[in-house]
Amino acid sequence: MVRNKRASKALKGTYLALVLAFLYIPIVVMIALSFNKSVSRAEWTGFTFDWYAKLFQSKQIMAALRVTLEVAVVATAVSTVIGTLGAIGMHAMNTGMANVLVNLSYLPMTTPDIVTGVSLMLMFVFAKVPLSKWTMIMAHIAFDTPYVLFSVMPKLRQMNPNLYEAALDLGCSPMKALGKVIVPEISPGIVTGALLAFTMSLDDFVISYFTSNTDQNLAMIVYSAARRGVEPTMYALSTLMFVAIMALLLLVNRRSGLENM
């Protein structure tokens, strides 16, 4: 019986190891190749940082990096404010109205990305708004905000409702009570929501691709480069993007724990 158990554990372990290998071998190979001297994927001719240097010399990639960061920062800031206020407002609403809004927030999560992308593109084109990083920002705010909302809502539900009432009774104006009582109580949710929004924004390709024409973000650069074939500078770029997303996720995770991910 004991031997049986040990055998089954070994079997399970091997299976999990195989799945992990499947998931990680491509990533590891890509990171290794970003340091490979040779352009060819077939041989290892020595260690180099050349591809990283090339990356930082490329005007196109640096411009894309700027667009990516600008869009992520602005979209995160706006969606954090709108989303937090939205959560506070919905918390104070009657259930019927709040349910309508919650369902509205699920809409961008259930619509396929490509349909969201083309639908926004249609609206912008119809309104004759040129497709640039500004339209990209508007689109990003639309898909970022629900993440903020859903991070803040549970914190509001956990909050003691009497605290707000007490502040009002003690002479706080509603605005002041909001700033002094509610926001500090829910701030962990706000920060988590903001980090999630930032990650989503950095990571987005499909919606950005359809909502911006003149400005490209990094993911769009990766796509157009990948269509031309494989280039080592793209490995370097991918490695850096991978590391950046990992760092952000570690931050989010340390805050919220994996269960809430």
Binding site: L85, G86, G89, L104, T116, M123, M138, A142, T145
Partner: peptide, 22 residues
């Protein structure tokens, strides 16, 4: 306080519902 949700509602309608109508 429920009015705080209006910018959110407005944004969601304008940037998810309206585009789908388009």
């Amino acid at each position: 306080r429920s009015w705080y949700a209006s910018p959110y509602a407005l944004w969601m309608v304008l940037f998810t519902v309206v585009p789908l109508l388009f």
